[in-house]
Each structure stands twice: as C-alpha cells, then as structure tokens.
C-alpha cells in the first residue's frame, strides 16, 4: 500500500526536528545513512544526488571554511596562517553542524522526491482550508519545469532579433531586461487568463470544495502521524527543558 502523502511529510518533518533537537553525532549520521539507503531502495537516488550536491556542497564548504579557519572561541590550535587559525573546537563545531543540517536536508528532500504531488494536493484540499495553498503549491511545481524551456525560447527569439549577450556583468545585466520582461509579461498575462477561468469555476467562492481525486488513508497511518507529531513536540520540549544536555 502507498504511503499517504501526509504520513511521509510527518515522518520527514519529525525526523528533521528530532535530529535537530538531539544534536548528537551518531543520530545525525544514522539518519543520513538511513535517508541514503531509502533513496536507493526507492529508486530516486540518481535524481536526488544533483539536488543534494547543489544544496549541501556550498553549505558544508562554507561552514568548514568559516569555522575551520576562524573560530575565536577555539583554544586548541592545530595550524596558524596569519590571522587564520585551525582549531579543534572550530572543526568540531563545523562538522557537527554540517552533519545535523545534512541529515535534515536529506530527509526533507527524500520526502519531496518520493511524494506524489497530485496526491499531496488532493490530501491538502480534502482538509478544507488549504484549497488555496494546494493551488499555489501545485501550480508552482508544474510551472517550474516549463519556465526554463520558455526562457530558452525567449532568448532565441531575442537573439534572432539581434540581441548579443556580451560576457561580463554589464553585458548580462543589459541582456537581462530583454529576457525578463517578455517572460514576466507572458506569465502575468497567462495568470490573468487563468484567474478568469478559475473564477468562472467557482474557485474563489467560500463554500465547500470537493476533490476529484481520492487519496487512500488508513487508521494505522492516522495513528502513525499522530505519534510522529507528538514525538517531535516531545523532542522540542525535552531540548528546551534541558538546553545543554548532551553538550560535549
């Protein structure tokens, strides 16, 4: 049986919260390993890898450079180059934060790569208030892939009209206007058409909305969701109760 989208969201969210609250090396590494294993098992590892690299590489490098080289609070100095000092405390802090953030990012990305967007939208709108939020979410997720091809077409059209994109920041900024204005204009224009169509179908009315798509849910999953949310709340409460527990 497929997981209900809210169940995977709850699982990912509470795992991210609990990992942040626990702030422990072994747990972060376990979560990273589990997320990696699940992504391979789910067959999304190949698609997820570029996204993970784009997000985590600058983050981890920036943390390592920032705290590895400059950590005024550090006392155990390993190497010293002029103003930069590599300290044990700095490296420890950087790696700990990197592991914690990587765990949260991996879990949340795994969730968004495995979740079915139409199911999520249907599940959200089944809960009443969220019809508008569901529309924004679904509309953005479907617009995004279309945008890059449209940008390419606009650039080709402008180049056919004689636009030359010169190298350097000034050349790019000059070319920006010729590409951005047609893009924004066409998007705003289309949004106007869509608004009229949606309004004609009663999207703006305050009454009850029904959904064409039904998402399967089971009592067990409902219980699992409740337990996951309670566990996340308990983790936050425990951490706030004892802010320095587990500090090394």
């Amino acid at each position: 049986m497929r997981l209900h989208p809210m169940t995977s969201l709850a699982a990912a969210g509470s795992t991210a919260v609990i990992t942040t609250a626990a702030a422990s090396w072994p747990l972060s590494l376990t979560v990273i390993a589990a997320a990696a294993g699940l992504s391979v098992a789910g067959g999304v590892a190949r698609r997820m890898l570029p996204a993970v690299a784009v997000i985590l590489a600058p983050l981890v490098l920036s943390l390592l450079a920032m705290h590895g080289l400059f950590f005024p609070e550090g006392t155990t100095v390993l190497v010293r180059w002029g103003p930069a000092r590599v300290t044990v405390e700095g490296l420890h802090f950087a790696l700990e934060r990197a592991a914690q953030l990587s765990a949260a990012v991996l879990v949340l990305l795994l969730c968004s790569f495995t979740i079915s967007v139409p199911d999520l939208v249907a599940a959200l709108s089944a809960r009443g208030v969220h019809a508008r939020f569901a529309f924004v979410l679904a509309s953005t997720l479907t617009l995004l892939p279309a945008i890059s091809s449209r940008l390419g077409r606009i650039r080709q059209a402008q180049e056919a009209r004689g636009l030359v994109i010169r190298p350097g920041i000034v050349g790019r900024a000059g070319a920006f206007r010729w590409q951005a204005v047609p893009l924004v204009l066409s998007l705003v224009e289309e949004a106007g058409t869509r608004a009229a169509a949606l309004q004609a179908r009663g999207f703006g009315s305050a009454g009850q909305h029904t959904s064409y798509r039904a998402v399967q849910d089971s009592p067990i999953q409902r219980w699992v969701r409740l337990v996951l949310v309670l566990a996340a709340v308990a983790a936050i409460a425990a951490r706030l109760w004892q802010p320095t527990a587990g500090a090394s």
Partner: peptide, 29 residues
C-alpha cells in the same frame, strides 16, 4: 500569516503568487 492572508486575496492576485514563486526560485537558485 499565510493562514490569515491567503483566504482574503482575490483570485487575480492568488494566481500571480505561483508566478512570483517561480521567479524567486529560478533567479534565487
């Protein structure tokens, strides 16, 4: 804020939000 504001927006503004989000994400990323 979202829960408070979103239901009050007219549909013509609501359909623009995905456009804005796409612009944010494409340029920001």
């Amino acid at each position: 804020l979202i829960v408070g504001v979103l239901p009050t927006l007219p549909v013509s503004t609501l359909v623009l939000i995905p456009v804005a989000l796409v612009l944010n994400i494409v340029l920001g990323q």
